[in-house]
Nucleic acid binder design. Structure first.
Lengths: 341, 341
DNA sequence: TTGAAAGCGCTAACAA
DNA sequence: TTGTTAGCGCTTTCAA
């Protein structure tokens, strides 16, 4: 493991010049710069990030705090962030808060505070005021992804609007009896997300002149199983059966499709189903959905942080709202018998 | 951000004593130790990992190198490793090799070498000799998970045996026409895994006195869609239809179940299906499977590394082979008409 | 059991 | 453009 001294020796310059030549900070003549680089390459020299961090106060490392890794949305955001960080020469250190409360405390009290990271990306976390406080105390840039974090800059899709688009799609097809499968209070991993999607759903109905029927709402936990169960409940009674379901996630929507099948209902013949996400399985099931782009969200979070860490590199487009797109596949169609009002 | 000096001042001792009291290295009287701890707590002092690493040469950080994050197996291994590391006071830095070749090279040439990690966990990676070489040059403990890495200590289930167990389960139920959906050559994310599972499948058949029929083998890419397609192909011809399918992953097995349904076949009435993994969706689909435990594999990898990094802490049980268990659910049963031989 | 002091490997003033 | 030098904050001999 050669050090900066050896490179300096081989190149016939001082360590300061090596540092400057390799980091690009400060002026070095082209000739010495290439001599230094050649020497570094020959020796296989790589800076010690610790020594460098200690001297500069910058770590070139970003902390990502996350409640689960195991779900499509989260791992996709992390992947997107990873790639973007790599391109910028940064490492990504992962802090999974999914464990016990102790683990969570320990992350906040010790790990994040070790000065190991230059900035933090918090994904879909419901943080307590004191947790946000300790993050802010670090005096490091923080950006949230996937939910409003009080007092922090956050990247998230407009859930009300997303739900509205989905519901309006069903309305436009002629549906009137539109059920909604949304989050239960216990699953608050995405803050007010369930609530917001329900709000958008109800707003669209109201504007479409359709009365809101509480019997057409069911709670689930954002999983396929949960969606299946909720849908089974919703669809059981042929007399009170909706002609369409808007599920707040694709996994629940897929559960709904499977439940419909098991009840002998055809999709979209007897039942239209739409979800949110464009989950990796959505296409396979022909699921119409409102796509969101988690990998892109991860990338965007990184861009924002880079802008704050390196004002020079700042990316121009910083306030594009997060995209989402209606994707029509084969799970939605006009209801079999269009009502005549 | 208080430093060690301030703690020393407040506790009325030297910085050396603070370091000793807080790290547990060296002897400090109980009274001063508690005084120091109180002072540290009062000031909210946390060591600077950089300064500490620079002085000790240890980073308390482990690098995890992985080809995808987006799949159940990988994210589960990472989660398991994360929790175990957290308990040991270590951070986890993630290196995703899924991108382009450039990204891959850059990870190996720069990132891992920055002396930022004390050890490396390589998950399901097919590494080139030169990549393994550069890892070994680091002179840091490395352990692989999920596939044999030439020259490295590796944790992986016995894929031949896993496949044998699955196939024997079907044989024991009375099946003779047993198809296999395995990996294609292009999907080598898990090395010889597809091959090994096929080997176990064929060995079990042979021992069961069943001839191997190449027409009963289909390739797929380990995804649900791929399994669906392969199964559709396998099941299309009623005359040549197998009574059971062993898929090399649960996702492909679920695809098979869905394909069977779409062809009007009942599972397990007309077709038994078994997979490998115990994927999160397996239970929902009533899928019989050979479970493996990726989170535990991640944890085990961490234990091994901790054993090498801290010989004192060494966990006794180091060579338990990785567990796998046959889980019988409702996707497997005796074939409808048992042959009379 | 404790303290003084010399680094760990690098960067950034400052001076030349 | 380059070199000298003083740290960055901590750990760890060595001595007391």
């Amino acid at each position: 493991m050669p050090g900066i001294n050896e490179v300096a020796l081989l190149a016939g310059v001082s360590t300061a010049t090596v540092s400057r030549a390799l980091s690009g900070n400060g002026h070095v003549s082209d000739s010495t710069k290439s001599r230094v680089k050649a020497a570094a390459y020959e020796l296989g020299y790589v800076v010690s990030s610790n020594a460098s961090s200690l001297a500069t106060g910058r770590t070139k490392n970003i902390g990502v705090v996350i409640p689960f890794l195991n779900r499509w949305f989260f791992s996709s955001v992390v992947e997107g962030a990873e790639h973007a960080l790599l391109r910028n020469g940064y490492d990504l250190t992962l802090y999974n808060l999914g464990g016990s409360g102790d683990e969570r405390r320990s992350v906040f009290e010790h790990f994040l505070l070790r000065k190991r990271v230059d900035a933090v990306i918090a994904i879909s976390l419901e943080l307590t005021a004191s947790e946000v406080g300790s993050l802010l105390d670090l005096n490091k840039p923080i950006v949230g992804v996937g939910g409003p974090l009080p007092g922090l800059q956050t990247l998230s899709i407009d859930d009300v609007q997303v739900a509205r688009v989905a519901t309006e799609h069903l309305l436009a097809l002629g549906h009137r009896a539109i059920a909604h499968i949304g989050g239960n209070d216990e699953v608050e991993m995405d803050f007010h997300l369930p609530t917001n999607r329900r709000v958008g759903y109800e707003a669209a109905l109201r504007e479409g002149g359709v009365a809101i029927d509480p019997a057409l709402f069911a709670e689930a936990d954002f999983t396929l199983q949960g969606g299946y169960r909720a849908a089974t409940h919703l669809l059981r009674d042929p007399a009170a059966r909706p002609t369409a379901v808007f599920a707040a996630s694709d996994e629940m929507a897929i559960g709904t499709i499977l439940a419909a099948r098991d009840l002998g209902l055809s999709v979209p013949g007897d039942l239209s189903v739409i979800g949110v996400d464009d989950h990796e399985l959505a296409e396979f099931f022909g699921l119409s959905t409102v796509a969101q782009y988690p990998a892109e969200q991860g990338r965007r979070a990184v861009e924002i942080l880079m802008g704050q860490l390196h004002p020079a590199r700042r990316t121009p487009a910083e306030n594009i709202p997060l995209r989402f797109d209606l994707i029509e596949r084969t799970s939605t169609a006009a209801p079999r018998t269009v009502g005549v009002d």
